[in-house]
Nucleic acid binder design. Sequence first.
DNA 1: CGGAATGTTGATTATATTCAACTGTTGTGG
DNA 2: CCACAACAGTTGAATATAATCAACATTCCG
Lengths: 270, 270
Amino acid sequence: MRAPLPRLPTPHPSRIPGLIAHLGIFSRLSEPQVAELATDARLSHLGRGTPVLHRGEPLPGLIGIGYGLLKLAARGVNSEERVLRLLGAGESFGAASILLGRPCPVDVVTLSDTLLVTVPTTRVLKLVDLDPKFAHRMMLALAERNMGLLSELATRALQRGIQRVACYLDSLARPLDGSERCMATLPVAKAVIASRLGMKKETLSRLLHELAQNGLIVVRGPEVEILDRARLAEIAYRDPCSPDRQAAGPLVQGASTRRPPSDPKLQTLS
Amino acid sequence: MRAPLPRLPTPHPSRIPGLIAHLGIFSRLSEPQVAELATDARLSHLGRGTPVLHRGEPLPGLIGIGYGLLKLAARGVNSEERVLRLLGAGESFGAASILLGRPCPVDVVTLSDTLLVTVPTTRVLKLVDLDPKFAHRMMLALAERNMGLLSELATRALQRGIQRVACYLDSLARPLDGSERCMATLPVAKAVIASRLGMKKETLSRLLHELAQNGLIVVRGPEVEILDRARLAEIAYRDPCSPDRQAAGPLVQGASTRRPPSDPKLQTLS
DNA sequence: CGGAATGTTGATTATATTCAACTGTTGTGG
DNA sequence: CCACAACAGTTGAATATAATCAACATTCCG
């Protein structure tokens, strides 16, 4: 936390409809529908590290991101926190809570300069009631999050730290001009990513080091060069109990050859 | 797994509408609506330990439980599995998957003699399209599961094993005539409960023993007598890093006094 | 430059898993 | 009814995995 909490100048409100229309959850709405959502909507331009909501507070509405980054985190009784989700531009949160009239279940904090749009609860509920197509899309969005949360739980339960790291890097990989190599840029501080992956920053540091020592990646600050994506994916999806293929160092031990039936990849910023 | 997979005699199909109407998700439907859902629906009476679906298989429809118990579990590449959810009579699963047209994301197995009703996907989708009220309830049900999954993730991330055990016992506690004491009956085998709580059966055994040694509970097979519910809840919700209140043995170490802001209790059979 | 935030590294400790042996329970068939 | 096999649960020792604590290095910014 930081002391002064700078509330930055807010952009021109006339941009609200455009921002709303670019949120995934409000895409495909008609222009008048967007306009109606926009009548009440508020913009907030927040500096990095600003708390947006605390757990237990009432949600003013559905909150979308124009630009910037948010983290949603659960907090223990003292101060330990676990990042549950990272959100970027075009994404939103709070749908489930406002539909049920529940308070915010997580702490929400900006991770960079961020522009938020808040569409008041009543407008969203009205839209759900009046537009069956919107209600349907909302239902599908909730179902999608459901599947995502489920796979998150499964990932946590079944994968070791190093597998989650490998998985995450694989999900960030962008092809580089050179055929084999890829790049991955860590979108936020390593401590945040560590928390998102269910570990401490020290552990993440060690695991990245271990991957580097084995020639899979090269770490330069937030830029990670992926030298051997195939082998990285193999680690990510390997059965940690299967026998060694080649004694290749201290890198876990197993090396099964098949991918798992489903796709437990961590999503970028999800 | 067991070899013969007895497919037990199925009850009279005339009971299908009654069973459907008793499922939470289909409550409040009109009689003709239930009748229409029932036209295609199939009953299956399965013996204990019968696999219902494997991960990746297509879902025939929404599956509800007339009586019995199901476990939904994620499976690693080899054979290690983690129980994600336990379902009892009146509950159902598969809603999110069939809405999105996705295959079953988990392994489903009966834990006792169980009667299942399968309502075909097309009937459910049709109902969603034709009855806005049902669509709305479905949306709320998905939102509710969302919150549940989120709190599950938070629980896993922030609570120690012994806290999850204490929490679970607290959630099972039924008042006993004697004022202070309560009873909790473990609904399924300890190994299954352990997996549901994110640990191995050996660990659960040791943690129960530890609670017993400290005079909080008495374990007699699946029956757990809760001697001091207040202290149990204190363990469940305590900050594991706060200083000791009284050096009371090997039971974690902390003893903060307040409950957490929200309610991270594990639900019975959820 | 100085200072805060961020990241790394080593030593130690906490928590839970694994493996193995053993006990108790339950249901079944002789 | 008993013997037996399959299952369920317990316990101990060794091990794996990650957290914690502390010191230090690096980067980012004003």
